[in-house]
């Protein structure tokens, strides 16, 4: 436990020792708050809710979480520090969870820094806080699931560019599967409804939708958590191969 905490601390602070953290936070905050304002009709909707903010989040995560996750293992492999790490008395699980949790904490910090959005709606109207909290919970869980995939992918290569691109593609698939426009396209191609539904069930968006609406369903939470666990198991396997 202490070892994992030490690893989390080092990894989390590592983001702030380079400009990465500041660039990431700036771009994330501009994108995550700018998109609902300028594209999502956040202001015009005349609704004291965060729906326009949350529906853009999967798309923002799609590019920015891989940017955080790509270095997790690729960087260690490229610089050779993983040799150092794995000759210390640290198990692969500890290393994987330590790095993952640090990254997750960092992305969660970014999500929490969008607090200006709820502050805005609270100032302008009387928001229903339930969906705001469940939406944020969903956002953090979804970010974890994104990051789990990116972490596993980055363990496969020492090239950060490959790591980024492959992560984006996998995450894109998992976002698209639940995107309504894409589902309608699949139905228009005469694919059976059960198949479209099953595929949609693997999507981040499908499980995030409920949480935006204020529903915290066990199956959604389990989906995100099990996806993270699966990705981390994969990550350990890749490193130990």
């Amino acid at each position: 436990m202490k070892v994992t905490l030490t690893l989390i601390k080092r990894e989390f602070l590592a983001y702030f020792r380079s400009p990465v953290a500041y660039v990431f936070l700036t771009v994330f905050l501009v994108a995550a708050t700018g998109l609902p304002w300028f594209l999502g009709g956040f202001f015009e909707s005349n609704d004291a809710g965060l729906r326009p903010f949350f529906i853009f989040l999967p798309w923002v995560f799609l590019f920015l979480v891989p940017a955080v996750g790509m270095r997790l293992w690729s960087e260690e492999k490229r610089s050779g520090t993983w040799e150092l790490l794995f000759t210390l008395p640290v198990s692969t699980w500890q290393a994987v969870t330590g790095k993952f949790l640090a990254g997750w904490a960092f992305v969660s910090l970014a999500v929490l820094l969008t607090f200006t959005m709820p502050v805005t709606i609270a100032y302008l109207g009387t928001p229903d806080w339930g969906p705001v909290f469940s939406g944020y919970l969903g956002a953090v869980l979804m970010a974890g699931a994104f990051l789990g995939i990116c972490s596993a992918v980055s363990a496969l290569t020492k090239n950060q560019v490959i790591s980024f691109v492959v992560s984006v593609i996998i995450c894109l698939a998992l976002v698209l599967l639940g995107w309504s426009a894409f589902n309608e396209l699949m139905l228009a191609l005469n694919l059976p409804v059960w198949l479209v539904d099953t595929l949609a069930n693997f999507s981040f968006v499908t499980h995030f939708e409920g949480m935006i609406a204020g529903l915290i369903r066990l199956r959604d939470v389990v989906f995100f958590l099990s996806l993270m666990l699966f990705a981390l198991c994969l990550n350990v396997l890749v490193l130990e191969r």
Binding site: R10, R17, S18, S79, G80, T81, E83, L84
Partner: peptide, 9 residues
Amino acid sequence: PESGPLYQE
């Protein structure tokens, strides 16, 4: 390790 990898930052 060979060529002494370290956490540079």
